[in-house]
Design a protein around this nucleic acid. Structure first.
Lengths: 214, 214
DNA sequence: GTCAACCATTTTGTATACAAGATTACAGGC
DNA sequence: GCCTGTAATCTTGTATACAAAATGGTTGAC
């Protein structure tokens, strides 16, 4: 498993997302180095990148640990994510062109297919493509980057959420309304729907809390 | 000028903000190392951190250059900043306590003092404290971090903006309205005012463009 | 005269060696 | 018996050495 610093970053990130490295766990540089067959230097580079993303926490002279976010912290992250996605949707409603709509609608259909075959993992995948299509349609490359970065950071929690009963079907129907609003150029409606689509509130808040307890 | 990687990061960041390193300029690792009297290792660490922040662009195997953002890119960044600050204001309106309001009002008064003595640099400084007080009053540590990070990234451009004629006085009067809305607990009004306070639009867009041309 | 290929030089990426600070265990005192 | 101080060990941070890739210049051919 010979790796370079970039692949190493992905390896460790994947290890964190899949739970191979658990939240709060200490990431020892020499252990990782021997594990991946490299020296400490690229390991440190990878850890710093993950620290910048926020996946791990690096305390000076005291090593790196996998970030363990408390419920309220995760809630705050979803709160911000909701606002950013809402903004992307509002911009998309105003600025979208034919190509944008084509990819959004194509992604929506793939979501419907996945939901029809009750394939949660597939839906998760297609859902991501759908949201990315909206980011792209905002025609704000910076906003797109911010959304992608935060989305990636929230990926593990999103994944847990989808397992909740009926969430997939509700998500799908919400997608429909969002596409309608964007197509109609109704920026405020798109903003409103996307904010509620992402935000964790009501029952879903409880779902989130309980999923974090595992 | 013996430096460690953290101080080094600040040094280089400062160099970029003050224009010591100009946009598009190539940042040579050995040059920086000799300049600050350290080896290449901490220089690389500092550069990676700056790359993660977005202040510089690191192309694999091809070195680091100071990020040069085109006008539309800077516009997009202000667009997102406006939305995040608006969100912070809305949350602050709903969640603020006495201590929050005390620091917000104190910051507002310091802004007034600076404006009264026509001290642009001082106003710039107090303005930052004012906005930070609002981030803090949102009681969302994650949102606060995001705002601080983006604010820092936009710092050089903000600085240029304030030099525009009368901008300081307009900014100050807008601050007044924002504080009123937050005090009154009017989240939507706070959101609206802050969005417009930050957003670059109309004449100010032209001002920004021309300031980037220098 | 211009274009292309090859070689030299420069520069990034990785490995290893060394220094300094932090953690922990052990011993001595209260 | 418990707490505290000190020392040993372990881990991070930095320096240097080495490898690989990219850039630039020179030379040769068309």
């Amino acid at each position: 498993m010979t790796a370079t610093s970039k692949t190493l970053r992905d390896e460790i990130e994947n290890g964190i997302v899949t739970g191979d490295f658990q939240p709060g766990e200490r990431l020892d540089e020499v252990q990782l180095a021997t594990r991946y067959g490299v020296s400490r230097t690229p390991v440190r580079e990878a850890l710093m990148q993950l620290g910048a993303i926020g996946l791990i926490e690096i305390r000076p002279r005291r090593g790196a640990v996998v970030a363990e976010h408390g419920p309220e912290r995760v809630f705050e992250m979803f709160e911000v994510m909701a606002e950013l996605e809402a903004m992307a949707g509002a911009l998309a409603a105003r600025r979208h062109n034919e190509a944008d709509m084509a990819s959004i609608i194509a992604a929506l259909e793939q979501c419907q297919n996945a939901a029809a075959s009750d394939d949660t993992d597939q839906y998760y995948y297609e859902n991501e493509i759908f949201h990315r299509a909206i980011y792209s349609a905002s025609h704000s490359s910076f906003l797109e980057e911010q959304c992608l970065a935060l989305h990636r950071r929230l990926r593990p929690y999103r994944r847990l959420q989808l397992r909740v009963r009926n969430r997939m079907k509700m998500s799908l129907s919400e997608h429909g309304g969002i596409v309608e609003a964007i197509t109609a150029g109704d920026a405020e409606q798109a903003r409103f729907l996307l904010r509620n689509h992402i935000a964790v509130q009501g029952d879903r808040f409880g779902d989130l809390i309980s999923s974090l307890k595992t």
